[in-house]
Design a protein around this nucleic acid. Sequence first.
RNA 1: GCCCAGGUGGUGGAACUGGUAGACACGCAGGACUUAAAAUCCUGUUGCCAUUGCGGCAGUACGGGUUCGAUUCCCGUCUUGGGCACCA
Length: 927
Amino acid sequence: MEPDFKKIAENWQKKWREAGIYQTHIDPAKPKYYVLDMFPYPSGAGLHVGHPLGYIASDIVARFKRLKGFNVLHPMGFDAFGLPAEQYAIQTGKHPAETTETNIKRYKEQLNNIGFSYDWNREVVTSDPSYYRWTQWIFLKLFNAWYNNDTQKAEEISTLIQHFEYSGSERINAAGAEHTPFSAQDWNRWPEKTKRDILMQYRLAYQSYATVNWCEALGTVLANDEVKDGLSERGGHPVEKRSMRQWFLRITAYAERLLNDLEQLEWTDAMKDMQRNWIGRSEGAMLRFKVEQTQYEIEVFTTRPDTIFGVDFITLAPEHELLDKITPTSHLDAVQAYTSVAKNRSERERMTEVKKVSGVFTGAFATHPFTNKKIPIWVGDYVLAGYGTGAVMAVPAGDQRDWDFATHFQIPITPIHQEHDSSKAANPAKDSILVNSNFLNGLQGEQAFSAAVDAIEKTGIGKRKVNYRLRDAGFSRQRYWGEPFPVVYREDIAYALDENELPLELPLMEDFKPTGQPEGPLAKATQWVHTNEGVRETDTMPGYAGSSWYFLRYMDANNPDAFVSKEAEAYWQDVDLYIGGTEHAVGHLMYARFWQKFLFDRHFVSKSEPFKKLINQGMILGRSNFVYRAVNDNLFVSHDILNKHPDIKTIPLHVDVNIVRNDVLDIEAFKIANNDNKNARFLLNENAEYVCGTEVEKMSKSKFNVVNPDDIIEEYGADTLRLYEMFLGPIDQPKPWNTNGIEGVYRFLNNKLWRLFYNEKGDVKISDEPPTEKELRILHKTIRKIEEDIERFSFNTSVSTFMICVNDLLELKCSKKKILKDLLIILSPYAPHVAEELWLLVKGNNDKQFIVQETFPEWKMEYIEESTVMYPVAFNGKVRFKIEVPADLPEADIQQQVTAHSETSKWLNGPPKKIIVVKGRMVNVVI
RNA sequence: GCCCAGGUGGUGGAACUGGUAGACACGCAGGACUUAAAAUCCUGUUGCCAUUGCGGCAGUACGGGUUCGAUUCCCGUCUUGGGCACCA
């Protein structure tokens, strides 16, 4: 009798839903555990078989922790704002609100088919006004905050205003601002506009002019990570640089804390490294070079102040603001010709021409601060405007890029390292002994570095400085489908809306296509834009706005009075386990940490890090199948006999993996699939089969290798899918999806496990007999192994363990209730539907209604321990035979037994040098 | 170029702190049941040599090293995947 997994799953999913058993409430009597998945972006394509991998793993942990007595928060929601939805909407002509709703419905259905234990009462959708109201609220908090470097904390903007009113800008150590100092009198006298402009330089959400990635075709500005090789990631349209007024978030204020706090996180080193590289902290010095015959000074950042005496020239970025001011008229034409070309070069060109040296002499000279030597000032595009000060002190003897530049333009190089030939290449090693370096002569490494910085600080030409690669986060998008900014302009000054005016709802627009102008589609909603209060902001927030705090909203998803209640936040605190892909390593995960830290500073949350433990599921790749069609003929040759027909020239073509089984083509299905194939002829192998070729590629429609979880569930059931996805291999490794192996898992459930409960006739065969020692040992070893495996997220080995356990019990013909009950409980996180169904057969009166409400059984050492141990006996590391001895036999006795063993003499010429006994493991005889 | 993670049978993978390499599956081969097929069950399945049995040798990308013992630790090389890349 075969179980109907589909019916079983539907039945239990319905019962769970009706009983509401996955609804979570605050329970101070229980320890909390928060398991979170990176919520999906509901695209029109639906889920493929790769998406649920992480969800299944997290669901297993959630169910396991519940059985272990934890109060588990395991929610799900949707990241519904963003460009793809808008693009999709434009393509289909449907409103994004509508397509988003449809897609979410589809996603929820697919997710529910797999039997996840989500508390859907806590669902969040980032595009829902009841949610983004609080995204806007956090924005207002950021807008009305500044970062105090002295206290290393964000503070309410009012404390800054107060300070200005009493002391002016004196003694303010804040992130960001660059303005001339002013007094309290100045401040109090200034008009509103001036004050607001000054404050804007301090706010954590602020406006500034900056070059952005403007994409003409999409009619919008793109984030750096949305641009690949100078083209838009989506659509591959050209991207150019443009200066626009933008909203920014001052994430750089948190650079040091974002870096340091990585240490306390249980993330993979790869993940932490990516974040470290992104933050890009470097220690060095900021110093100023006087420009001859002008009042200007050029500021440079260097990580190698020790090479200061090797400065042979200075290079400015083409965008450097002093360029026009310091260039003498004699050189102006040449410089301007160069900068206009360099600036207009696209990002793509700059990338591909990395090796090409270009630049021009400005005709100006700077003065070396220590030697008063004349230093020529050049402009070159190897210097980036966005990093440091956009100017470098070029030391060709120590830096390869400077060396390349110097060599190309035949600028003389000052050698500064002992025993190093500067005419061949630069020497970037820090531990070289310095020469030609005045007071640094003979020094090296750290010593030289500090001596140089000390001298720089003493002479007042510069100071020690830590620099970061991290940029402030662009927060403006010229798009329709995003959160509107709760901001109005009066006389071009940005004013925040009052908190009680939130949410500021996105107006319903028929025409939300990009305007093709730098302003967003919202500009077309003229009634909405022009209000009595002022003119609304027409930019919207980027996709990561909503995802930067959604994990907090789950704690108290339906609260109309706060983004999360104090009580809920105090109980759930942070995410214990977060599972998601590495693609969010430096985007989402960085922003979310930043927001959490800000909210922490302002005492809205109690933890400064949101995600304690992070697991990255590896990407599931597609396994494509190919058929080989003869050129100019409708003849297809089986892959395994291709080499027997060298005369037939064939081309490989992708074939839908859903009509291929174990790499054998379903010929009938192939003929129906496509009109061209109707009259196809085949050259089959000796088994009269058509064998397909294979290749591992990304899963995509165009490669016909997409497998839909719904199809797997239809054929094998939800539990088979869950088990098989886990069985595929370690959760964190990328791997190809290959449906070939699924039969084994399916057989395990519908045949082997089932046979423990039912005989061939379909009658229940469970007995009440007491279990034997052997049976208890099998059970308890399994319990221990499953528990260990889940704790270390080794789900694939768990599945094997279940198989071994069931195989062993079948061998013993054990269908004893005492054993089966515990087996079902520990299996239930992996295969919840089947476990519930079989639970009905063994459930007693005192047991819980649902198996998922039961308690995880405790394994007992007394059942696992064996009275005897089988020792493999090795000679010089090669195992030759085995002996069985009592478990508590002393080492000396084991050695004695080995020596006395009849086999031993076979491998020995004389007495052994040594006999090593590894207790409980093995014996090694050293000859 | 730099940083990180990998490389184990025909395939996915196991071996947790150095202790029986290849668990568990897939596939394949042979057998049982069947008129036949499917399903199911049983046996075998790293390679080479020996097969009358006992078996023997090699083997975890490659070359070295440490150790009684190395897939595991160290050094070098090759290679796959991911990230970063004129970051001063």
